[in-house]
Design a protein around this nucleic acid. Structure first.
Lengths: 350, 350
DNA sequence: GTTTACATCCAAAGCGCTTCGGATTACGAT
DNA sequence: ATCGTAATCCGAAGCGCTTTGGATGTAAAC
């Protein structure tokens, strides 16, 4: 038999009010009473009825995420992980995650239903577009939300995104710390946001190390395998080739890897290689490529959850931004520059 | 201002009772009144408060799915799709989907919370194991659920699974219809359920076509690339090699493909090839491999939703089983047997 | 004209929780 | 003694909906 507040309070000889307040941490109940109540509650297996509580408080104790129907590119692979991190963190606050999906054309209707029906306290907007009608919609209604991905809008709002600039900087720094001085970058066209950000990070790291980036070593390549292949060809043809290479995306990265292989390159010897996002494990390889790895979906989910909680707590939106920090994943394709490469240091004096 | 039942009924000069019953399709309200009510409701944008309704009815209007935390194999890629189909179908019945994830060690606690807290009306058990404690738990409590994947248990329960046998049969039939008579099968060890099922389907299709499977053409290969590679080697070394080949998994399939390539095989000419599950598009290929494709995640989700609805409707559990039907996805690696292969038909008479 | 049977409609009692606005008590301060 | 204060506790009024058990009126049956 399901036990409710009334039964619990009667068994304790207290009023429902007191029991309720004891359980909810109000200060106008003595500590001894509170302990008695808590004890009895767990004894009887009391679980407050969420619907009743929600009706009384007006909260829904749930947040929603509307998933674009039929979306199925690589981003989806992470979806399960994000959900995992999200629910994990939200559960700590006894908040449920409600998932809906809807075809893009009726997306706003779904939002309306969720909001007007008071089913959720806040929403997470996934896969934001540059000018996103959903965000405008939510801002107009003044409904709490967090965006997963930045967009362009005048008003402040909470968002989570990945820190591509930090990733580019990290990769470069890693190679610098290994002792490399001639570091090449193969990057995608810079009108792509991620490419521009990673490029900036790379350049920054070099400058921070007191190195002026050699324009010859920074090559723009189309976002495909051929691009990476040909760019590596150009690098290796130089009289003084770089000792390390960062490829800012893994599509060109696959091409670059192939090109290196064709020239007899072996991982760990000769040129060091870091590929942003790593090389998918489906590609048959004999080694693990060192890569800049995005945060896991779980950590993304947790970050989103924290943002939601902050939004609900009423923190100023302008402060609620989080950048997911990538990290350099250990692999076998980077190492110190080859011995002869150390001599140039001495030369640098002369 | 949020409009509630009271306001709506007052604006209509009716009682809350009548308005409620009109909206919920009771028969003791005249059709003209019902129309008036419906009209006014949409006019005022009335949305019933789900918490209040749930409190009154005792339903939660939500079903839950607990996702194993940290699971991240290929199965995950489909998770978003499944959720998509699930929520789509459930939304038609105004039922929400609650997602939780939890580490396996506290999984049952999560179930308990969800059930005792009356947060959901039913659960979906994903990634079932052969002897699944979650299923036992739910059966003991007599809580409605649907399993995504079959397991072993005495009591009947609702489940969804893929029809591997049908898939094997389909693939074989396809090759038979193209005119092949010497069809080889490379299969994984038969203690793996999927392998046994696909094997059975393959054999059945051959027998149905009046063909006795040639044991020489049915090769067991370990579940890896080498396995597929070597098996193909054996097949091609025969004095009378098969004209068609089915590989029952795409891991061995990749190896098989490589072996064929090494022997100068070209898609569409010579041996026909079907690979169960197809070849992942990440593998660089010049052609699309014909494959047996699992149903999409969306359709799986919809099937699960239907099962849940049936369970909640109280249909007998023993009837609530669904097999997801695979289909043969068109590709370029199958076709009629090469011309010389037609002669054996005449020979078959003599 | 009285009954019976329907067709419509409604008052009011919950569902289980929170919370406002006191009540009660104890106790040192005045 | 009287008052103010602080510490505890509680009665009762909701939150917005469903549903039970009639009430009312109207037409067909006797």
């Amino acid at each position: 038999m399901k036990v409710n507040l009334k039964m619990l309070s009667e068994s304790l000889g207290l009023s429902q009010t007191t029991v309720s307040r004891a359980l909810n941490g109000y200060s106008d109940v003595s500590e001894t009473t509170r302990q008695r109540v808590i004890e009895a509650a767990s004894q009887l297996g009391y679980q407050p009825n969420p619907q009743a509580r929600q009706l009384a408080t007006g909260r829904a104790d749930a947040i929603g995420i509307v998933y674009p129907f039929g979306a199925s590119d690589i981003g989806d692979m992470r979806f399960g992980e994000v959900v995992s991190g999200l629910t994990e963190r939200l559960a700590e606050h006894r908040i449920d995650l409600l998932i809906h999906s809807s075809r893009p054309d009726v997306e706003l209707d779904t939002y309306r239903r969720l909001i007007d029906g008071r089913r959720v306290d806040a929403l997470i907007v996934a896969r934001t577009r540059l000018d996103d009608p959903r965000i405008r919609f939510l801002q107009e209604r003044n409904f709490p939300f967090v965006a997963y991905g930045r967009t362009e809008t005048a008003l402040p709002y909470a968002w989570f995104d990945f820190d591509n600039e930090a990733g580019g900087r990290m990769a470069a720094r890693r190679l610098l710390e290994l002792g490399h001085r001639r570091i090449a970058l193969i990057h995608a066209p810079l009108d792509l946001t991620f490419a521009a950000q990673r490029y900036k990070g790379f350049i920054t790291a070099l400058r921070e190390a007191g190195l002026e980036p050699d324009p010859e070593l920074v090559i723009e390549a189309p976002l495909n395998r051929i691009g990476g292949y040909q760019a590596v060809g150009r690098l290796l043809a130089m009289k003084k080739p770089p000792t390390a290479l960062l490829v800012d995306n893994n599509v060109a990265g696959v091409g670059a890897l192939r090109a290196l292989g064709d020239k007899g390159w072996k991982p760990g010897s000769g040129m060091s290689l870091i590929v942003y996002d790593g090389i998918p494990s489906e590609i048959p390889l004999t080694c693990t490529v060192t890569g800049v790895l995005q945060p896991t979906g779980e950590s993304t989910g947790r970050a989103l959850a924290d943002l939601v909680l902050d939004v609900l707590a009423g923190k100023p939106l302008a402060d609620l931004h989080r950048l997911g920090q990538p990290c350099v994943g250990a692999g076998e394709t980077d190492g110190p520059p080859p011995a002869p490469a150390r001599r140039p240091r001495a030369k640098a004096l002369g």
